[in-house]
């Protein structure tokens, strides 16, 4: 067992170049191995910034970030193998087919030959992509793109998966399929950090949640405990509105 938490941040701050306001204002967050952590927050609360820093895509202004006990400023190949990232955008090559995209990202993680083919076929089967595997991504529907976007981030079986709103704009059927898959992944020992706007998703999937707003974690704990500890709120949705307010965001 790794004694270090999977994710540990201390007083993490981020200020974008040219901006006067900090996007993250001192985040302290600890996520243990096996957690399914939901990061909830309104638009522009700092969710995607936090995820980008945790992945190593973005640097931070001050504070400390450790993933599996290691810093993310100059992530090593080992750390990159341990992390899977599913971005909010469809980060795929539009002029490659579904299968070509999956094979490319697999190869980049060092998977090759029959092992890669079998893995790719298995994911294509799991996400019902058989009919579409030879379609160019540019010709695929939003739902197919979302599925391939997810596969590209988890194909190498990382120990930590960071998902930035993976169900954005998908229908109920696909959302349910993604939930089932993520639950299965978590049961198999993968730690998951999941950002979403949808409170019911977080309540259903996550064993712990954190609510972030204006660059600060304003609440953290088990969903049921958070609701119970608040006076007069029946569910996460009401609690969320109470904590973040009703003002419209960017």
């Amino acid at each position: 067992m790794n004694p270090d938490p999977v994710i540990a941040t201390k007083n993490l701050k981020k200020r974008y170049r040219g901006s006067e306001e900090e996007a993250l204002k001192g985040i302290d967050l600890t996520i243990q191995a096996g957690d399914f952590f939901g990061l909830l927050g309104p638009n522009a609360a700092g969710k995607s910034t936090l995820i980008a820093i945790l992945c190593g895509i973005m640097g931070h202004s001050s504070g400390e970030v450790k993933i599996f006990g290691r810093t993310t400023n100059l992530p090593t190949d080992w750390l990159k193998h341990m992390i899977g990232f599913v971005p909010q955008e469809i980060a795929l090559y539009a002029s490659l087919t579904v299968l070509e995209n999956i094979l490319f990202f697999g190869r980049m993680y060092g998977i090759s030959g029959n092992k890669l083919k079998e893995k790719a076929e298995s994911y294509i089967e799991t996400f019902h992509l058989n009919e579409h595997k030879n379609k160019l991504i540019s010709k695929c529907s939003g739902g197919i793109k979302r599925r391939v976007n997810l596969i590209a981030g988890v194909l190498h079986e990382p120990s930590l998966v960071l998902l930035d709103e993976p169900t954005l704009g998908v229908d109920t059927q696909l959302r349910s399929m993604i939930f089932d898959y993520l639950i299965m992944l978590n049961r198999n020992g993968t730690t998951i950090l999941y950002t979403t706007h949808y409170m019911e998703e977080a309540s259903k999937l996550c064993n712990r949640v954190g609510i972030i707003d204006h660059g600060k974690i304003i609440a953290e704990g088990k969903p049921t405990e958070l609701v119970a500890s608040s006076s007069g709120y029946k569910d996460m949705g009401q609690l969320f509105l109470h904590l973040t307010g009703r003002d419209l965001r960017d």
Partner: peptide, 10 residues
């Protein structure tokens, strides 16, 4: 398309 971000963590 965001593939650059994905490529950066490869």
């Amino acid at each position: 398309q965001g593939t650059k971000d994905r490529v950066l963590i490869l």
